[in-house]
Design a protein around this nucleic acid. Structure first.
Length: 507
RNA sequence: CGGGGUGUAGCGCAGCCCGGUUAGCGCGCUUGAUUUGGGAUCAAGAAGUCGGAGGUUCGAAUCCUCUCACCCCGACCA
């Protein structure tokens, strides 16, 4: 008999965090590497999480007045060249389409043929191709604001990839809006950052810091870039979403002009904002434990899993009938306006194997039901926010009565746990030596989990930021929106500073 | 693209240095029996172009040359 391991996931977070991450994905059967370099296959359990992210975010976009549309995956090279910084930022990591056909080369193999007169870039982001359409759509101030979102896949030819966090192809949404005034575009940029922050907190149960990127970390071509930054369980930061105020840069590049009320032709003001399948990576690393994935109920593909327990066909029939009765009571219930998502797992497997299967997949509630429960009119409930063995019996009445509340409790617990982890690992540091010591590894052979979020003063110059990055690989994640005016000295050069900024190592 | 490493059954690996029957092991899978409220046991079975091409040899997973792919560390990035 195989000896029972202490944890379902090997190694643990403590032992080898990056490997743990991979193993959680594998154990939950969310995704796998494909035969295409750097591209992942998103499997049903992972995709179902993405669908829930899409569904809820999409609703939030619609509520803020945005409409969905779809633009081509190919961008003519010349479009891309229109915004200088944009080219600079993306040129190195693009897939380029140069041919349109395959022909038999005479030996039974295929050779490329039909060279295109102008190469197409597979979109790494769509500002330029969408801008081309927008320039036609926008004529008058009456056409504005134009509030468009696209759900799409994009390609960035990354050299090093990791499932969900960085893949050569990934799924995302990109919002693109056009406004008649600078102020309105700035408000839009902040509004959408707020939508992302709210979504991260309420649905993904991930606390995030909202802030502005420094010049060095800005989106290529943007005037301001705003971000939500989340802390992972290895104390590194993950950029979970960005919102850009593009000024008139892209309007000028794409000739997005309109006639104002007083008859003048003006360049418009644009924004863009996006979140990607990386959110799933954030979800995994923010919440999961050494027994596998933990999914907040509001985003989980299943809310509860029934595990029927029986020894023979006769019991099986009874147990399944009993479960049906409970299901009928659950069906009318609504959890945040949605039906309860449940699964009756009557596969031909041992009970404990099923239990662990769903623990590893992160299902919020496991309901085990056997003949004993039928006698007592009860259910036996395991919660994913608690230890696997810590299960509790409820009467059916109490269970169905408290189910909604229980799901909310799990959601809150997960959020609070992530929040207190972040608070415990966020510090204010004013001394340079202490700052350096804080971010320095003790064991470079086998890197331990170290560091955290540090709020420290910064003079605002690029040189200090670069120097710290060079020395420690620590970057300014953002200038938090809620940073207070406070006089201090730059952590690197000692010059005067008025604000603390957020430093961390990041993904 | 620099530096290091690995390709052997679905997955994880041993064998290679020092060439020699029918290429093993663990997990998983299939079947049967016994089990069954907590990650079962026993038995039988299926499954391998040893990454690819070429070479050396009576004989290559093993030695040589070339090649492809992947992983890790750097630079770059949602």
């Amino acid at each position: 008999m195989a000896k029972e391991p202490k944890t379902a996931i090997i190694p643990t977070r403590e032992d080898d965090y990056p490997e743990w991450y991979q193993q959680v994905i594998k154990a939950a059967d969310m995704a796998e590497n494909s035969d295409v370099r750097g591209c992942m296959v998103i499997k049903p359990w992972g995709y179902a999480i993405w669908e829930n992210i899409q569904k809820n975010l999409d609703q939030m976009f619609k509520e803020t007045g945005h409409k969905n549309a779809y633009f081509p995956i190919f961008i003519p090279k010349s479009f891309f060249e229109k915004e200088a910084e944009h080219v600079e930022g993306f040129a190195k990591e693009c897939a380029v389409v140069t041919h349109s056909r395959l022909e038999d080369d005479g030996t039974g193999k295929l050779k490329v043929a039909g060279k295109l007169t102008e190469p197409y870039i597979v979109r790494p982001t769509s500002e330029t191709i969408i801008g081309a359409s927008f320039s036609k759509w926008v004529q008058s101030y009456r056409d504005l604001p134009l509030l468009i979102n696209q759900w799409a896949n994009v390609v960035r030819w990354e050299l090093r990839t990791r499932l969900f966090l960085r893949t050569a192809e990934f799924l995302w949404q990109e919002g693109h809006t056009v406004h008649s005034t600078k102020e309105e575009a700035q408000i839009e940029t902040k509004q959408m950052l707020g939508v992302y922050a709210q979504f991260a907190r309420e649905y993904l149960a991930i606390p995030v810091v909202e802030g502005e990127k420094t010049e060095g970390e800005r989106f290529p071509g943007a005037v301001n870039t705003f971000t939500i930054e989340a802390m992972m369980q290895d104390k590194k930061a993950l950029q979970a979403g960005t919102s850009h105020f593009l000024g008139q840069n892209f309007a000028k590049a794409s000739e997005i002009k309109f006639q104002s009320k007083n008859g003048e032709i003006e360049y418009a003001w644009t924004t863009s904002w996006g979140v990607s399948t990386r959110l799933i990576g954030a979800l995994i690393m923010a919440h999961s434990d050494d027994n596998g994935l933990i999914i907040p109920p509001r985003i989980s593909p299943e809310h509860l899993i029934f595990i029927p327990i029986y020894k023979n066909e006769e019991d099986k029939v009874k147990v399944l009938a009993y479960i049906d009765g409970i299901v009928n009571e659950i069906k009318p219930l609504r959890y945040h306006d949605e039906k309860i998502r449940y699964n009756i797992d009557d596969r031909d497997m041992t009970n404990s194997e099923k239990g662990w299967y769903w623990i590893k997949k992160g299902a919020p509630l496991r309901i085990e039901i056997g003949p004993r429960d039928i006698e007592n009119n009860s259910v036996f409930v395991g919660r994913r926010d608690k230890e696997p063995k810590e299960k509790q019996s409820y009467s059916v009445k109490d269970f169905t009565g408290q189910l909604i509340q229980m799901l909310d409790e799990i959601q809150n617990n997960i959020y609070q746990r992530a929040m207190s982890f972040r608070e415990k690992n966020t510090f204010m540091i004013d001394d340079k030596d202490q700052f350096y010591k804080f971010f320095t590894l003790k064991d470079t052979e086998k890197p331990e989990i170290h560091g955290g979020f540090v709020n420290a003063h910064w003079c605002g110059c690029n040189e200090c930021e670069e120097a710290i990055k060079g020395d420690l690989k620590v970057t300014i994640r953002c200038i938090p929106l809620d940073a207070k005016e406070e006089s201090g000295k730059c952590i690197y050069c000692g010059k005067d500073s008025k604000k603390r900024v957020l430093f961390a190592k990041s993904y």
